[in-house]
Amino acid sequence: MSKSKTIITPEGQNIRTTLLELWQAPALIRAFASRDLHVRYAQTYLGFVWSIIQPLSGLSTLFILFFKIAGIETGKVPFLAFALSGLIFWNYFNYLLSQSASAMVAMQAMIKKIYLPRLSIPTAKALVGLVDFGVGLLLLVGICLFYNISLYGLLVFPLVLLAIAMAALGIGLTISAISLRYRDLQQIIPFALQLLFFLTPVAYPTRMLSSLLGNDWTWLVYLNPMTGTLEIFRGFLFQSPWAAEALISLALCPVLLFIGIWSFVKADKKMADIV
């Protein structure tokens, strides 16, 4: 018989106990992640091939829209390498944010029936997104080899990915906490993400955006956590210069995660009564 003791009071959980519980539930995170992966391509004809088709078709679209039609200049860097280096991170950000934002609403039936470390649900989504990211990264390696770009710069990707995961999870958790009461937010997510895509330098250089604002307001574009992180990654990969303001984006990521966890823990207490 275990010595553990559970004490239930009106106060509920705090950030420390919530994170501790999450840490003790690797089996659960793994189970949720593996369920998502298995279910994802169940009953599809092409199965895993979709994970390759999707980034390729995304890249083709960017190539036609931004390069052929809009004539975006990416300097010395070949457009395809430039765009793909942004696209794989954007896709991960997009997936994790939208999935974690809707995770609570999607799992309300379970939340009403059983207690579990609820953070494990969005955390598992961060793992699931890694599969698509991995495929994208391999494509990027292929393109870099094709254009004779040194792969050394790629080594910085875990750090950039971690920052982007923090930001996506942070924003997603905040939205999921608020949308327990205001479901409207769920309607806005796809639309807001689409808008954000065009405001994020995925397929065009940051300076095109900052030049619109003028020198004094350049820092504003780095309030988008994707902007600076992508610039830093490209700086390492393509040996291009990056602005010091890009660090604003990087610093913002853990802050967003903290806000997300804080609002999630606050909402957690009322979750079963509301959903």
Partner: peptide
């Protein structure tokens, strides 16, 4: 089961808890 929190009062449970409000959750 800790699915919801009380408004007042306290519960002390010795040992770990498993709750079955339904079977086949998930």
């Amino acid at each position: 089961s800790r699915i919801t929190y009380p408004t007042a009062g306290r519960v002390e449970i010795s040992g770990n808890v498993a709750s079955l409000l339904e079977v086949g959750t998930g």
